[in-house]
């Protein structure tokens, strides 16, 4: 068998447009995931039982159900209660909500890794709980969390391929479109895979760079 990539070349601009959509969706979803994850993760550790429960439930549901089902609920399900979202918006929100569940666990782990003695030291020095969190716990927790967050971001980039099921023309969707006209399935998806690899490598390089910068401080 012979692979002929020249068939694919004319479609490269399409691939790049798809990659751009993938990157955009990923970045937006990461930001949403970080915001939700921070709130929910903190919600799991603060000394307020009802909040702890709600945060726990969020993580439990998100991590216990498939991302694809979550995306379908948002895109196909919400309109039945009158909330109609554009495919891209629905996809980004779905990805972000999903990632939030995983980020929450990372945030919780990062916070709990800060030695309890420091919290008590801050308390006797007169800091409120929120001040302690902000000045002492979170700066350290973020450093503890970085490697796990890096993994989560990479996972999210890969899972964004599911957005193709909502008819969003991100990278995987572009692959399917090009395949349907060229029939060069293997070549097409090798190119798609390589572009994903470039994106995920960029993410892990960036995270490692940030990690190193933080280490010095």
């Amino acid at each position: 068998m012979k692979l002929d990539f020249s068939i694919v070349f004319p479609y490269l601009p399409m691939f790049f447009k798809g990659a751009k959509a993938t990157i955009e969706a990923s970045i937006l979803a990461i930001l949403i995931g970080l915001a939700i994850g921070t709130i929910v993760g903190v919600g799991r550790v603060i000394p307020l039982k009802p909040i702890n429960f709600i945060a726990w439930l969020y993580v439990y549901v998100i991590r216990g159900t498939p991302l694809l089902v979550q995306l379908f609920m948002i895109y196909f399900g919400l309109p039945s209660i009158g909330v109609e979202l554009e495919a891209f918006t629905a996809g980004v929100i779905g990805l972000g909500i999903n990632s939030g569940g995983y980020v929450a666990e990372i945030v919780r782990g990062g916070i709990e890794a800060v030695p309890k003695g420091q919290l008590e030291a801050a308390k006797v020095l007169g800091l409120s709980y929120i001040q302690t969190m902000w000045h002492i716990v979170l700066p350290q927790a973020i450093r503890n969390m970085l490697p796990a967050l890096g993994n989560e971001f990479i996972t999210l980039v890969k899972e964004s391929s599911l957005l193709s099921t909502l008819a969003i023309t991100e990278l995987t969707m572009v692959g399917q479109q090009v395949r349907s006209v060229t029939f060069a399935s293997f070549e097409v998806f090798i190119v798609v895979a390589l572009i994903y690899l470039v994106i995920t490598t960029a993410v892990s390089t960036l995270v490692r760079y940030i990690e190193r910068k933080w280490q010095v401080r």
Partner: peptide
């Protein structure tokens, strides 16, 4: 405490200043 429990993200000065700032 036995294990110091200093704030590792703050300098020596800021560690000592901490309670005064909080107040």
């Amino acid at each position: 405490f036995q294990n110091y429990a200093l704030f590792p993200n703050l300098s020596v000065f800021e560690n000592v200043a901490f309670g005064l700032r909080a107040r």
